[in-house]
């Protein structure tokens, strides 16, 4: 690698209960705008945004899949996280149920998502702190327990998409946790695979590759 800027591309998926602010976070990150009434996402929305990490001389492009929160659309989620490099599990700090839901997503990701996926647990709506239901200490305890149990490190952060506080920071943290060097090679090979995936393909391909190399 020369001194020139490196470029890496990663898929990121947002998961979380309905109306916790997934789309608002994305829009704050991508367009730096906020709507009090962002209409419900149906199915999934796709956006991209790049960030620079000057100290690492790296530009990272996020391909962001913003999913619908309604339980009904849950069965579509695997297609979005199946080949994602990072996942944002979002909850609303004013809603305990949304925090529980975010934990469910983390569980599911640990079971089903590709190994090495970077997971961030994000509490949104810190501007509504007077209605806070999710205690930050409890969240930290949960994260600690989880990180002690396994090798993975889950990123945790709170933000306000409305005020624009903490949003960029989350993506920055994620970018720094991504395996930039490892994946650089892969990016080209994977370039044409967009975020929707079906079933066992990853496994299949792995098998395929392994077996291929025997000849």
């Amino acid at each position: 690698m020369t001194e020139q800027n490196r470029f890496a591309q990663f898929k990121l998926v947002l998961l979380g209960e309905s109306a916790v602010g997934k789309s608002s976070i994305v829009h704050r990150f991508v367009k730096n705008t906020f709507d009090d009434l962002r209409e419900s996402t149906i199915g999934a929305a796709f956006l991209t945004q790049s960030i620079n990490l000057p100290d690492l001389k790296t530009t990272i492009k996020f391909e962001i899949w913003d999913t619908a929160g309604q339980e009904r659309y849950k069965s579509l989620a695997p297609m979005y996280y199946r080949n994602a490099n990072a996942a944002l599990c979002v909850y609303d700090i004013t809603s305990l149920s949304s925090f529980n839901k975010a934990q469910d997503w983390i569980k599911e990701l640990k079971k089903q998502a590709p190994e090495g996926i970077v997971i961030a647990l994000v509490g949104n709506k810190t501007d509504l702190t007077e209605n806070r239901q999710v205690d930050n200490d409890e969240v930290l305890q949960y994260i600690n327990d989880l990180n002690n149990d396994s090798n993975s490190k889950i990123i945790h952060s709170e933000c306000s998409a409305k005020l624009g506080e903490g949003v960029l920071d989350i993506f920055d943290q994620i970018a720094r946790s991504l395996p930039i060097d490892d994946i650089n090679k892969k990016v080209n090979g994977n370039k044409r695979i967009s975020g929707v995936d079906l079933g066992r393909n990853i496994k299949q391909n792995q098998n395929l590759q392994q077996n291929n190399s025997c000849c």
Binding site: I42, G43, M79, R192, I193, S194, V196, L198, N201, N205
Partner: peptide
Amino acid sequence: QASNIYIATDGLYYDYTFYQALS
């Protein structure tokens, strides 16, 4: 080309899914 399974199987299996139009 927008189908993942099509790309993942090297262009040899296509399942006709078209999520783009869902909404």
